[in-house]
Nucleic acid binder design. Structure first.
Length: 272
DNA sequence: AACGCGGGGAG
DNA sequence: CTCCCAGCGTT
């Protein structure tokens, strides 16, 4: 079967999306900064959690200048609870990068995929998401949801974590916008993966089931191909909670290495 | 190419 | 409880 997203497929997707898409605080926003904030958070966190942090973030850092001028400690404080704290640091770096590279206030943000990729903390996913949603730039998002959808749609058996696979999907999807707004098409694919083409999908109500290779061959359970699970080593250790005069001792770990830069009680990890 | 990073949800 | 998830920077 040809690995092409036809006009019919794209149209069916968008009809479904118009009816089933979820409302989100940043959806439909014309502010690229708002889009960027939401995508940085959505990289690792589900929509319901991001909604709470998004409002708090925008209130505290209303624009890219507020973020760039803030102290890193304050940035981390607002991010606290989201995890992946290196990303908050990179986001802060990214805001400084944007401000430093601004030529005038009418060209504050990059408007294409390639220039967004240069921003610290912004990789292929975020560059495609922000440039397409905020600037209609035709770059496809290839996130985990999308990979699962495409693996089924085209019966792609190769490992979905390889660069080759990623590049192929990027090219297929970049030819599949068919005149629709790239940002909305991207969001529609992700929404389909999030609501319909889930790990355990409900194919009977899927708008693309007649186009789906895995469904037509009754092989939905075989895609995406399962990857070998990596074994995570268990670390054993002890924590000492040291109190004096109503105060508790906490220490900060070195920036590099395991749990870098995070605060902790006095910990001793066995073997270190 | 492989690894580490932090939470939350599902079973 | 245990398992599963996922983008980016680093090595």
């Amino acid at each position: 079967m040809q690995k092409i997203i036809s006009r019919d497929m794209c149209n069916a997707l968008m009809v479904w999306f118009d009816e089933h898409r979820r409302e989100m605080p940043w959806r439909g926003s014309a502010d690229p900064y708002h889009i960027w904030v939401s995508e940085m958070m959505l990289q690792q966190t589900q929509v319901a959690t991001v909604e709470k942090y998004f409002h708090k973030w925008i209130e505290r850092f209303p624009d890219v200048f507020a973020l760039a001028n803030a102290d890193l400690e304050n940035v981390l404080k607002v991010w606290e609870g989201l995890g992946y704290y290196t990303r908050a640091r990179n986001f802060h770096k990214g805001a400084k990068y944007i401000v430093a590279h601004t030529k005038d206030k009418h060209a504050l943000f990059p408007v294409n995929y390639e220039d967004w990729l240069k921003v610290p903390g912004v990789g292929p996913y975020t560059a495609a998401a922000v440039s397409s949603i905020a600037f209609k730039y035709p770059a496809a998002v290839v996130d985990g949801n999308v990979k699962r959808v495409m693996a089924r749609l085209f019966c792609l058996g190769d490992s979905i974590s390889t660069q080759k696979y990623h590049k192929m999907l990027f090219e297929i999807m970049n030819e599949g916008f068919h005149g629709h707004h790239p940002g909305w098409v991207n969001q529609a694919w992700m929404e389909l993966g999030s609501l319909q083409c889930t790990p355990r999908p409900n194919c009977s109500t899927c708008p693309l089931n007649e186009h789906c290779c895995a469904y037509k061959n009754d092989q939905v359970a075989d895609f995406p191909r399962k990857s070998e699970k990596k074994k995570i080593p268990t670390r054993y250790g002890a924590a000492f909670i040291i109190e004096k005069d109503d105060k508790v001792l906490i220490l900060r770990r070195p920036e590099e290495g395991f749990l870098g830069g995070l605060w902790e009680y006095r910990i001793h990890i066995k073997g270190t």
